[in-house]
Simulated scan of single mutants.
Amino acid sequence: MKFLPTAIDGAFIVEVEPWVDERGLFARTFCAETFAAQGLVSSYPQCSVSVNNSRGTLRGMHYQIAPQAEAKLVRATRGSVFDVAVDLRPDSPSYLQWASVELSAERRNAFAIPEGCAHGFLTLEHGCELIYHLSSNYAPDLARGVRWDDPLFAIDWPFAPVVIGERDATYPSYVRR
């Protein structure tokens, strides 16, 4: 696996290094020892799936606060998405910066996002599916969100969303700390 740093301190694009032969392809997508050596979370007690029917579906920007803040490892298993993280950690050198990656089932890449970052994505085609590995169990009372189009972040989305849930559409702007 290759770990490519992003603009966010502690966030990495994870690329697989496939072995290809007459049978097809094989690649490691996760190794606890390798992730820990990189300084990343290496234990994920919860895994979730997100299925999105339409191109232009936006989900985000979500995060969970302490004591159950979540690190995430996100991978597209069908289709492709514009995946984004925003650093909301006031003590971070990359506070309020954002990073993005195009995740695709074809590339088999992933986005490792540290605790304290908001996360969201925009589907680039119909029929996208994402797998989330989460470092903490979902706690509805600790779940939070911020506007996907907050001018403070100035995320350069590839196009305007077509489908967005009411909760995501009505998140407040972020208040700088």
Rank of each mutant, 00 (worst) to 15 (best):
I155P: 06
L4K: 11
A85Q: 01
A37Y: 01
E17S: 10
N53F: 14
A139Y: 06
V101E: 01
I155C: 09
P67M: 03
V49Y: 11
R59I: 03
Y44Q: 10
L88E: 02
G24T: 03
R144C: 13
F35E: 03
A71Y: 06
Y174S: 04
E17A: 08
I164K: 13
D83V: 00
A85W: 02
G116I: 11
G24M: 07
A112E: 09
F30G: 02
R59Q: 01
L25Y: 04
A118I: 08
L40T: 05
L122H: 06
A99F: 03
V86I: 15
T170M: 08
P158V: 15
V41A: 15
D168F: 06
F35I: 02
S100T: 07
E125N: 10
L134S: 05
W157A: 14
G79A: 07
S80R: 15
F82C: 05
P158L: 14
A169H: 13
A36K: 11
L73D: 08
I131W: 02
P45Q: 12
V175F: 04
V163P: 00
S54I: 11
R55Y: 02
K72M: 10
R176P: 00
P158R: 14
I13P: 00
V101G: 02
E17T: 13
S136Q: 13
D141A: 15
C117Y: 14
F35S: 03
A169G: 13
W19V: 14
T123V: 09
R177E: 15
D91L: 13
G39A: 08
Q97T: 08
A32T: 04
R107A: 15
V163H: 09
T123M: 09
P172D: 15
A66G: 09
P114T: 12
F111D: 06
V16I: 12
D83Q: 00
P172V: 12
L124A: 10
M61T: 03
D168A: 04
H133K: 14
E15T: 03
C117L: 12
T123C: 08
C31I: 09
S92R: 02
L73H: 12
L152E: 13
S135V: 07
P18L: 09
G116Q: 08
T34S: 13
F153S: 07
I13Y: 01
R55F: 05
A110R: 06
R177C: 11
R108T: 12
G127A: 10
D156F: 07
A7R: 11
P161S: 11
Y63I: 01
A36R: 13
Q97I: 03
V101T: 09
A37W: 01
V14Q: 01
V20R: 14
Y44T: 11
E22I: 05
V163D: 09
I65Y: 01
T29R: 06
D156L: 08
S80N: 04
L88G: 00
E70D: 03
P90D: 10
I65F: 02
S43L: 07
R108N: 14
F153Y: 07
D83I: 00
R78V: 05
V74M: 06
I164T: 13
S104E: 01
R89L: 01
S104K: 00
A71H: 06
V101K: 01
S42V: 02
V20G: 03
V74D: 04
V41F: 11
F159D: 07
